[in-house]
Simulated assay, not measured.
Amino acid sequence: MSREGDGTTDGNEKYGRKPFKRSKSHFADRITADGADGWPVEAGRYRLVISRACPWASRAAISRRLLGLEDALSLAVTDPLQDARSWRFTLDPGGKDPVLGIRYLHEAYDAREKDYPGGVSVPAVVDVPSGRLVTNDFQQMTLDLATEWSGLHRPGAPDLYPEALREEMHEVMEGVYRDLNNGVYRAGFATGQKEYEAAYSDVFRRLGLLSERLADRRYLVGESITEADIRLFTTLVRFDAVYHGHFKCNRHKLVEDPVLWAYARDLYQTPGFGDTVDFDHIKRHYYEVHTGVNPTGIVPCGPDLSAWTSPHHREQLGGRPFGDGTPPGPVPAGEEVPAGHRP
């Protein structure tokens, strides 16, 4: 078995002859203001490792940008193509992460737990001084960035996890996760017709409910962008590029739903969202790594991405993208998505 979890997107996925089931994050330590788990928030101590191909990792990349944590939490971007030794740092000079000094993410996992038998997943936060993995808990990670790391947020950072809205947010996010974020994977990695059809039905039922919800409101919960929007966006931005064809979620495309297509474009054009998206990495990873789904490894030329920057008119619904805050600044030097990888 390969270290990255049979070549799937984030190492928390398994597919084969058994029905698809996402495993729980094995390393669920938290980095908190009080350091209760032994990992205190500290500027410059930790490194966030992502793949721009992975929707779960993209959540962390967006949150980090919106909150202005770039100087406090450094970023490592892996190659979109894994090999049997896990996510690799072949995009960096010499094929080695310049801060951690490792060639493969599994080295940080091994430093934490030698011969750990599970998948090597992103996003992952690594303790730079020790080289040890701290957490790969993608569900909790962004919530902690929004709350526990608040002392290091930029001036004007938005409140992505408003306390008064949390109950409603979790209700919305749970449905989105079950039926859509994870539902596309259940459809794509299904090993039987009934299993596939059930997942397919969940995906489009949830898309229909979301379209109704967003028809007269700009954002999912409240009047501003929250964690709920981030979690929905990372699936929507991949829908036509990979999920529609590669995962057989083909009842209709995102561009054929006027509400969701406008909503997705609105977020894409918001600083902190689209500037983290790398369509080249997304397509190459899914189509080249998932050989069980796409044995030829051929990467489709389409879809046309130019419309992502077209007017969306969602501002007519009101709302304030950053609430009482302000947009994030420019993408830091060295973190830009390469030219030609986005519209």
Rank of each mutant, 00 (worst) to 15 (best):
A190D: 02
D159R: 06
E167S: 12
P162Q: 08
F233Y: 15
T142K: 04
V176F: 01
V203K: 01
I230M: 05
D179K: 11
L210W: 07
L143N: 06
A199K: 06
N182I: 13
M173F: 02
R154G: 04
D229A: 07
I230D: 04
E163K: 15
D229Y: 03
G208S: 07
L165A: 05
Q140H: 13
T191Q: 12
V172N: 03
Y200N: 10
A228Y: 10
G183V: 01
A157N: 00
P162I: 14
D229H: 02
T142M: 04
E174P: 00
F189N: 05
R166W: 02
A215S: 03
L143M: 12
Y200T: 10
E148T: 00
G175Y: 11
F204M: 02
L180V: 09
T191Y: 03
Y185M: 01
N181G: 06
K194Q: 14
N181E: 01
G192A: 11
K194N: 08
S211I: 15
G192L: 02
D144A: 00
L160F: 07
D216E: 14
R166S: 13
T234L: 08
R206W: 13
L160H: 05
R166I: 01
H153W: 01
M173S: 03
Y196N: 08
Y177I: 02
F204K: 01
G208D: 10
E197V: 01
E171W: 09
S224L: 04
K194C: 08
R154M: 10
L143W: 14
G222F: 04
S201F: 08
E163L: 15
A146G: 03
G175A: 13
R206A: 08
F189Q: 08
T147K: 15
T226C: 07
Y177T: 09
M169V: 02
M173H: 02
Y161T: 10
T191H: 12
A199M: 07
L214D: 11
L152S: 15
R205P: 09
